[in-house]
Simulated assay, not measured.
Amino acid sequence: MFDVLLSHIEDKVDLTEKDKSELQQFFTCKKLRKKQYLLQEGDVCKNLSFVSKGLLKSYMLDEKGSEHISMFAFEGWWISDFNSFINQEKAVLNIDAIEETELLTITREEYENLMVKIPIMDRYFRILYQNSLVTKDYRLMVFNSFTAEEKYTQFAEKNPDIIQRVPHNLIASYLGLTPETVSRIRKKISFK
């Protein structure tokens, strides 16, 4: 489980052997069953979580109880309600498992200790946050300017694994489309 995290970190920064041996002490292993919550709206997000196996979704519920998915997180991704985690405020997001999932979690206190004890991790997280901001900016542009078919096609090309692993109604929610629209687009694409 820890090897997935080490590999992910080493893709971004160079760790010494000492860093590698110290790193594990900051994390706790956690397993989730399918549909089990990692975080519920209104709770304070106590952990930043790295997905070593499985798949989760992060979402808000509207007044009608409809899900509005903001993120899918699969192997090699981090997930949390980051505002809640950093500021220790009530979460606005729900996070639950789409598949059985294995996580490595780190508390806010241990996250801060990690930055002090292994300074290269500050650079690692800065790279992640920069990439996340670029991704969110791109997603906003796509959401506001692409047609439904362009949204789905672009998402499918960038995330072929998710297309196979996630029910199309969840993909529709993520793309801001109806399940019927996604079904129609999928049929149209399969006939091409």
Rank of each mutant, 00 (worst) to 15 (best):
A91C: 13
L56Q: 10
R139K: 09
K187P: 05
I118G: 07
L177A: 01
V116A: 14
L23C: 07
A91S: 15
I69Q: 02
F74R: 12
I79L: 07
L23A: 01
P119V: 05
K53W: 00
Q25E: 12
K188N: 15
Q25C: 09
V142E: 00
D11L: 10
F26D: 06
N94L: 12
Q164K: 08
Q88N: 13
E110Q: 13
E102Q: 10
E110G: 04
F82E: 06
Q40P: 12
T153H: 01
A172S: 07
A73D: 03
D43H: 05
L56T: 11
K151Q: 01
V116Q: 15
Y59E: 13
S132F: 01
E67K: 07
S49E: 04
L32W: 02
S84W: 00
A156S: 07
G42R: 09
K35I: 02
I118K: 12
I185D: 01
Q130C: 03
V92K: 09
K151D: 03
K117Y: 04
P167M: 07
G65M: 12
E17S: 14
N169F: 15
L56S: 07
D81Y: 05
A172V: 07
E17T: 14
S183K: 00
Y174R: 10
C29P: 07
L175I: 14
R123C: 11
L170H: 14
K30H: 04
S58Q: 12
Y111M: 02
R108Q: 08
R165I: 08
R123Y: 09
D122S: 14
L175D: 02
E89Q: 14
D81H: 05
H68T: 14
D14Y: 05
D43R: 11
M1N: 10
R186G: 13
E157R: 05
